[in-house]
Design a protein around this nucleic acid. Structure first.
Length: 487
RNA sequence: GACCCGGUAGCUCAGUGGUAGAGCAGCGGACUUUUAAUCCGUUGGUCGGAGGUUCAAGUCCUCCCCGGGUCACCA
């Protein structure tokens, strides 16, 4: 390693001696990109173009050579000859290494073998690469290296960059859709004194000036609803949530969430909006209303199913909500279905477990599951005719939970009772039960209009739309345990 | 957290107890239409770390570190 770097440093020093220090260059004006030259060859043939990029391959032939230049759009072949550059400039190519950034000017032509190329008349080294790049043919195979050194992964596999561009396009398309619908994008606290809005353990940090502990948010929900109280009609936020849980193929400690709240809308209207958001996202990603995941190909253009929690429980688990009337009934169900919730055995934990194991994997075509019990829905409004159930849905596609929404509970007295119930579950050992939030209750006490709310995990949605099996592959810099050599 | 698999040259990988290897990259040389260019020569290694067994350890044993997978936990 030291030797390979030392060789390159020597070449850099040689360039500096000749007054051609590549690191002094601040600007280089390009006329075209690599893909433009390919696409518009017919009109560019014989014309002069100027491009810049990274040198990624070299095939020498004595007094001539072929170089491959890669920019953000693709690759283009360069043809350099001693005749055209002159012996001095041609000799200087010895100081250029694979990985260096170069700028070239020359005429567009096509080689005998049909390769669109540039006959280089001028070449400048724009920046030097002091470390060797991964091998050209096999690229970077080591999954650890791909995630730890994403810059190398991106160099070795340009398709990876395309994937992240698609992710960006997806989120932009969702923003446009929501902006068109009168939603206002807002930013609410990432650091919160009380963490609420979801069931998860938080990260804790410390504010020195205030000398208080703060939690990284597990959800923005309770702040976004305060904005509805304050008079915003429709708000959304697309940003990071943090959850201090295990990491695996579909859990990252920080992940990107869309949450939106729409005044005077119920969960049926939110359902329609959800379908629209996901179809819009799909088109932005692939140009088609398609999702693929875990071997499933899903047509998002077909009708989506709507089924109640009770229906799907009966069909796939042979259990009805009536069988889960209280905690002792839940214990019996847990025994009968051989599920073993970690921690306390309650209606909430048994229902979650039975659903996860027996029901969820069967929900392959887009399916809205509605009417969740109050016990698992601390912020959802009750159904007027069945007060033990809520106006809530979750959307499942390819067995993956894709969205969660409800008519928001705006009755402050009921909300206080739900918090108190959560406090009891917390006391019973459920670390993820909601902590009481007096200020949020106070906001509701001032009055919140009827409101529909929605959450969609952006990472998982993107995985679903692209068939990506690991969340680490849709996050540019996934968290990893630091290695000593990185300090 | 448990179990399984992996960690050898810059990169991709061989090497199951007896002198650490190959391809690519690099370096030197030949070559003015190649594209995984070709041909000749050649440099490069704390074999993830620490102990142990053995005359001898990349290889066997123990512990540890890092990653991947499965399960558990979790939206």
């Amino acid at each position: 390693m030291d030797e390979l770097m030392a060789q390159r440093v020597r070449k850099l020093e040689e360039l500096r001696r000749m007054g051609m220090d590549p690191f002094q260059i601040t600007r280089f004006d390009r006329t075209h990109t690599a893909s433009e030259v390919h696409r518009r060859f017919d009109e560019l043939e014989g014309k002069a173009v100027t491009l810049a990029g990274r040198l990624v391959a070299r095939r020498g032939h004595g007094r001539a050579a072929f170089l491959d230049l890669a920019d953000h759009t693709g690759r283009i072949q360069l043809h350099v000859t001693e005749d055209r550059l002159g012996p001095e400039a041609y000799g200087r190519l010895d100081l250029v290494d694979l990985g260096d950034f170069i700028g070239v000017s020359g005429e567009v032509f096509r080689t005998r073998r049909g390769e669109v190329s540039i006959a280089v008349s001028e070449l400048r080294i724009l920046s030097k690469s002091l470390r060797p790049l991964p091998e050209k043919f096999h690229g970077l195979r080591d999954a650890e290296a791909k995630h730890r050194r994403r810059y190398l992964h991106l160099i070795a596999e340009p398709e990876v960059r395309d994937l992240f561009v698609a992710r960006s396009r997806m989120i932009t398309a969702i923003r446009h859709l929501l902006d068109e619908r009168g939603f206002v994008e807002v930013e609410t606290p990432m650091m919160q004194a009380i963490h609420g809005g979801a069931a998860a353990r938080p990260f804790v940090t410390h504010h020195n000036a205030l000398d208080i502990d703060l939690y990284l948010r597990i959800a923005p929900e309770l702040y976004l609803k305060r904005l509805i109280v304050g008079g915003f009609d429709r708000v959304y936020e697309i940003n990071r949530n943090f959850r201090n849980e295990g990491m695996d193929r579909d859990h990252s400690p920080e992940f990107t969430m869309l949450e939106l709240y729409q005044s005077y809308a119920d969960y049926h209207q939110i359902m329609e909006l959800t379908t629209e958001i996901i179809r819009t996202a799909a088109v932005a990603v692939s140009g088609a209303m398609k999702a693929r995941f875990a071997g499933h190909e899903i047509d998002l253009g077909a009708d989506w199913h709507v089924r109640t929690m009770d229906e799907v429980l009966r069909e796939f688990a042979g259990v009805s909500l009536a069988d889960l009337s209280d905690d002792s009934a839940a214990k019996a169900v847990a025994r009968a279905k051989e599920v073993d919730p970690d921690g306390p055995v309650t209606v909430a934990t048994v229902l979650n477990k039975v659903f996860d194991i027996y029901v969820q994997p069967n929900l392959v075509e887009p399916t809205y599951v509605t009417e969740f019990p109050v016990a698992v829905s601390p912020f959802a409004k009750r159904k007027p005719d069945q007060p033990e159930l809520t106006e809530r849905f979750e959307l499942f596609i390819a067995g993956q939970e894709t969205a969660n929404a409800f008519s928001e509970l705006n009755d402050p007295l009921d909300q206080r009772a739900r918090f108190e119930d959560q406090a009891r579950q917390r006391a019973a050992g459920d670390e993820e039960a909601q902590p009481m939030d007096e200020d949020f209750l106070r906001a509701l006490e001032h009055g919140m209009p009827p409101t529909g709310g929605l959450g969609i995990g952006m990472d998982r949605l993107f995985m679903l739309l692209t068939g990506t099996e690991s969340i680490r592959d849709v996050i540019l810099f996934p968290h990893m345990r630091p290695r000593a050599e990185e300090y």
